[in-house]
């Protein structure tokens, strides 16, 4: 474990709970893409199948349980409890256009042609594009609530910190995973446009609004 990965995991945890609290407190999921949340739930479920078979540490197992539980809870709040506030008119990204190609790629490009490894690879590839429905929704509505932009900033930062973690681990542990690094770069690059808007607007107290 290194500081980049620890801060990255905490940033990821913060993002998930900022979103969960926003929906719970405001009793509304306006401006939030339910499709992205479904993809994130799929990412965690397919990645953490080794939760019971492969014990790494208490921290590792605890975080996996928290990530799965909180993301499933978010999907539950959005599609069941506060379904009336779900903005389905703007959350129209066709996620099958993400899941199918990613599924195919996971079959073709992986470290090991075994079910667990292919599911892990699918999860890594899917996570890199899972935020697209959310970014697409913001581009359609033209703006995002400030709390939602904080959520996105923490979520985008987590994988950027993981890139630093992989640089650290490469030099100090000789650890290198090309699939995770390439997907992590794609994932972080997708946030660049948002990071620019966040830093130039939200940091100065303005609302995040995309140029019309």
């Amino acid at each position: 474990m290194n500081i980049f990965r620890l801060v990255g995991d905490l940033s990821h945890l913060l993002a998930i709970f900022v979103l969960l609290l926003k929906i719970w407190k405001s009793r509304s999921c306006a401006g939030v893409s339910g499709k992205s949340q479904i993809l994130f739930a799929l990412v965690f479920i397919t990645r953490y199948l080794d939760l019971f078979t492969n014990f790494i540490s208490v921290y590792n197992s605890l975080m996996k349980v928290i990530f799965i539980a909180s993301t499933v809870a978010t999907v539950y709040l959005m599609y069941i409890k506060f379904k009336a506030t779900y903005d389905s008119n703007h959350d129209t990204f066709r996620i099958e256009f993400l899941v199918v190609p990613v599924g195919g790629l996971a079959f073709l490009v992986n470290h090991d042609f075994t079910p667990l490894e292919i599911l892990w690879t699918f999860s890594i590839y899917l996570e890199s594009v899972a935020i697209l429905p959310q970014l697409f929704m913001i581009s359609k509505t033209g703006e995002a609530e400030t709390i939602t932009s904080h959520y996105l900033f923490a979520l985008g930062s987590y994988r950027a910190l993981y890139l630093l973690n992989w640089i650290y681990r490469y030099y100090f542990e000789g650890y290198f995973d090309l699939i995770a690094v390439v997907a992590g770069c794609v994932q972080t690059i997708l946030y660049c446009d948002f990071f620019y808007l966040y830093i130039t607007k939200v940091m100065w107290g303005k609302k995040l609004s995309l140029p019309a």
Binding site: W120, Y175, D177
Partner: peptide
Amino acid sequence: KESDGLKDEL
């Protein structure tokens, strides 16, 4: 292999 197969990251 580059990644020793053991997935120790979240």
